[in-house]
Write a protein that binds this DNA or RNA. Structure first.
Lengths: 221, 221
DNA sequence: CGATTCTCGATTGTCGACAATCGATTCCAG
DNA sequence: CTGGAATCGATTGTCGACAATCGAGAATCG
């Protein structure tokens, strides 16, 4: 029985990742290795390794001899995240549409049904979870390990942005209608349509977030 | 004057990366932290951090409490690398085709001309360099920092595969004619055509490499 | 008063020591 | 001879100590 076989480094990285993604650590916030090592109850070398992992995932930034800080959010950041996601998910959707069988179809339907239930839910967190789960499901089903690796880091960033806009602008988008075209194209086994559907979805989400972001900027200015 | 401001960790990572990419460390080869720390003349913690970086770039693999080893090559590995590259370069080509101006046009032409000179060269290394440079140029010109980051790691893997087939099967492909469609589509400011051209190029390269790989397998079996 | 240099506290960069873990080998009971 | 437990060497996992570096403010000079 291997249950708790994560190294200290992995656990520390997971902890920090969660704190950033859930907004408990704010964008731009400064992080010092000693503080973290006391707070996480682990050595400084361990904290350092965890921070390096998060740096590779592009969640935090390092300034040599000066410190670490949580990445800042900007319009450009939003644009980069969503366009990159579009490229990766586009590949995933194409691959899934080619190889779809009964098992895959069942998983996609399950993810989509969860999305529909979440639609009526008042719980903003569940809406976000269901949405992210849908996208991650498609990527996993592509059977492409390198793609899944790259997507993992990116999806954390997306989760971060999602939770952040869900806080400021609850329940904006219409989950069901926004995702249905993707499901239909994949189940129709049409790779090009699936790629286009998921990329259109990404562009629409980006436009939405950019609008909210501008509004928020305006308010705080 | 900042010349040599790389940390030991970065230097060690660069050194190991180069050794892997140039084939001085063979696929599957086992790496121990102590050996490396003696060979590189640096502490074990430093070596460890460098190895973590290369792990994030997917060049090496770690087995907990057991060791590190250079990643192995397989058909699946080839397929994943080239398809992922297609997705990333596709996005880059699309972005460049949209924003192309005189400066960008000049850089693309320069990269393409280098490719044409390398064509006649007998130096396999220069052929590889020119080829990689062409692809990296397009990605850089896209003005997309996250994309460039992700592509960097992937391009090391591609370089590795390139040098490896160049060793076994020198001067196979026709550099000029394989890349011209990409240049033409971008300079014609046609995003979709540019994306398709660079993805077709990737698929053709993949097919080529897979054929060579199977041949090599057959010989050594 | 302004600009430059110096000093100092804080933080990261680097390192080797010690503990935890693994895998192969040895040893022993049956 | 065989199966399994104990042992041992090798390697990674974790940690805190010390050195290098940076940024801000004090001190100095024109």
């Amino acid at each position: 029985m291997k249950i708790d076989k994560l190294s200290f480094v992995d656990r520390a990285a997971a902890q920090l990742r969660s704190e950033i993604v859930h907004g408990r650590l704010l964008p731009g916030e400064r992080l010092t290795e000693i503080d973290l090592s006391e707070r996480l109850g682990t050595g400084r070398g361990t904290v350092r390794a965890a921070l390096s992992i998060l740096e590779a995932e592009d969640l935090i930034v390092r300034q040599p001899y000066s410190g670490w800080s949580v990445r800042d959010v900007s319009e450009k950041e939003l644009w980069e995240t969503y366009t990159l996601r579009g490229a990766l998910e586009g590949l995933a959707a194409r691959l899934v549409a080619i190889t779809v069988d009964e098992a895959i179809e069942a998983k996609i339907n399950a993810a989509f049904e969860r999305l529909q239930s979440a639609e009526s839910s008042k719980d903003g967190g569940e809406r976000v979870d269901a949405d992210l789960n849908f996208h991650r499901t498609i990527v996993d089903l592509a059977g492409h390990a390198s793609l899944a690796r790259q997507y993992f880091g990116l999806s954390n960033k997306v989760e971060w942005l999602y939770r952040w806009s869900e806080t400021h602008w609850p329940s904006r988008i219409d989950l069901t209608s926004w995702h249905r075209p993707i499901v239909e194209a994949i189940l129709a086994r049409d790779p090009l349509a699936a790629e286009k559907a998921i990329q259109d979805h990404g562009e629409a989400s980006l436009a939405d977030d950019l609008r909210d972001f501008a509004e928020l900027r305006r308010q705080s200015a």
